[in-house]
C-alpha cells in the first residue's frame, strides 16, 4: 500500500484498521502520525458533540410504553352497582381477577428478569466490541509499546480526571497516556512499562462487565474486569504482568 492510498483509506474511516493499513503504519512513521492525528481530530469532534443528556431522559423514553392494559376492574351491573359479594357472578369475577393478578405477577417477574437478561446481553456485546476494537487498535500501533520515555504525572492525572477517576497513589512507569476513541466507546489509554513487558490499560466507562475474565486476542493476554463505573481491560504478554498491573492500578487510581 502506498502513502496516498493509506491516507485516502484512513480519511474515510480511521477506526477500521485492516491488516494492510496496520502494516503500512508500522513501516511509515509519517503515515502513522497522520493516522494518530486523524484519530485525535475525531476525539475532539466526539467531545464537541457529546452534549449532556437531560436528567431522567431515558426514564421518560421508557414511560412511552407505560400505557399497558391495566388489571380489569370489576364490571358494573346495568343498574350501576357492583357485583354483590358472594354472588356467583362476583365469585367468578373474583376468580378471573385472581387469575389476572397471578398472570400479572408472573409477567412482572418475567419482564424484570428478562429486562436484566436483555440488558446484560447488550452490555456483553458492547464489552466484547470494546475488547476487539482495543486489541486491534493496540496491534495497529506497535511502536507505542516501544516507548521508554516516562509521561509526566500531571498528564496522567488529567487523563484520569477526564475519565471521572482520581489518582490516589503513585503510578510509576507510565510511558503513554492519551484518550482513545474506540468504536463503540471511548477509553483512557495508558501504557505502563513493567518487568514483564509493557501493559496497555484501557479504561472504558461505558463498557460494563459482570466478572473479571481472561481472554486471548491478537497474541495478547487480556484481563477484563469491572470498575466502579464501566470496566478496565489490560493487555499484555503474560497473565503475571496483568495481575501485577491490576494491583498497581487498584492502589493508585479510583475508577
Amino acid at each position: 500500500m502506498d502513502c496516498l492510498t493509506f491516507r485516502h483509506t484512513v480519511l474515510a474511516n480511521p477506526n477500521e484498521l485492516s491488516s494492510l493499513i496496520a502494516r503500512h503504519a508500522e513501516v511509515c512513521q509519517s503515515c502513522a502520525r497522520y493516522l494518530r492525528s486523524l484519530v485525535s481530530t475525531d476525539q475532539q469532534v466526539n467531545r464537541l458533540l457529546a452534549v449532556e443528556v437531560p436528567a431522567g431522559f431515558s426514564n421518560r423514553l421508557k414511560s412511552v410504553i407505560k400505557e399497558e392494559p391495566e388489571i380489569a376492574q370489576p364490571p358494573k351491573l346495568k343498574n350501576g352497582t357492583n357485583f354483590s359479594a358472594g354472588s356467583p357472578l362476583a365469585n367468578a369475577n373474583r376468580r378471573k381477577l385472581g387469575r389476572y393478578a397471578i398472570a400479572a405477577s408472573v409477567l412482572a417477574v418475567v419482564t424484570s428478569v428478562g429486562f436484566v437478561q436483555g440488558k446484560a446481553y447488550l452490555n456483553d456485546k458492547v464489552a466484547a466490541s470494546f475488547r476487539t476494537a482495543a486489541s486491534n487498535y493496540i496491534s495497529s500501533q506497535p511502536e507505542l509499546l516501544e516507548r521508554t520515555i516516562l509521561v509526566q504525572d500531571d498528564r496522567v492525572d488529567r487523563l484520569v480526571s477526564a475519565f471521572g477517576g482520581e489518582l490516589v497513589g503513585d503510578l510509576d512507569g507510565v510511558v503513554f497516556a492519551e484518550p482513545c476513541l474506540l468504536v463503540p466507546v471511548s477509553a483512557a489509554h495508558l501504557i505502563i512499562g513493567t518487568d514483564d513487558g509493557p501493559v496497555t490499560v484501557m479504561y472504558a466507562p461505558e463498557a460494563q462487565v459482570r466478572n473479571e475474565q481472561y481472554y486471548e486476542m491478537n497474541d495478547y493476554q487480556i484481563l477484563h474486569y469491572p470498575a466502579s463505573t464501566g470496566s478496565i481491560a489490560l493487555f499484555g504478554e503474560s497473565k503475571q504482568a496483568l495481575e501485577k498491573t491490576r494491583s498497581t492500578l487498584l492502589a493508585s487510581i479510583n475508577w
Binding site: 458533540l49 452534549v51 431522559f57 421508557k62 410504553i65 399497558e68 428478562g114 436483555g118
Partner: peptide
C-alpha cells in the same frame, strides 16, 4: 432470541441507544 419480550427489548434499546441518539438529535 435472548430478549423475547418486546418491553424488555424496548427498554434495552433505550439504554443502548438513547444517549448517542440524543447527541445526534441535538446536532
Amino acid at each position: 432470541e435472548a430478549p423475547q419480550n418486546n418491553k424488555v427489548l424496548f427498554n434495552s434499546l433505550v439504554d443502548l441507544v438513547s444517549t448517542d441518539l440524543y447527541r445526534y438529535a441535538f446536532w
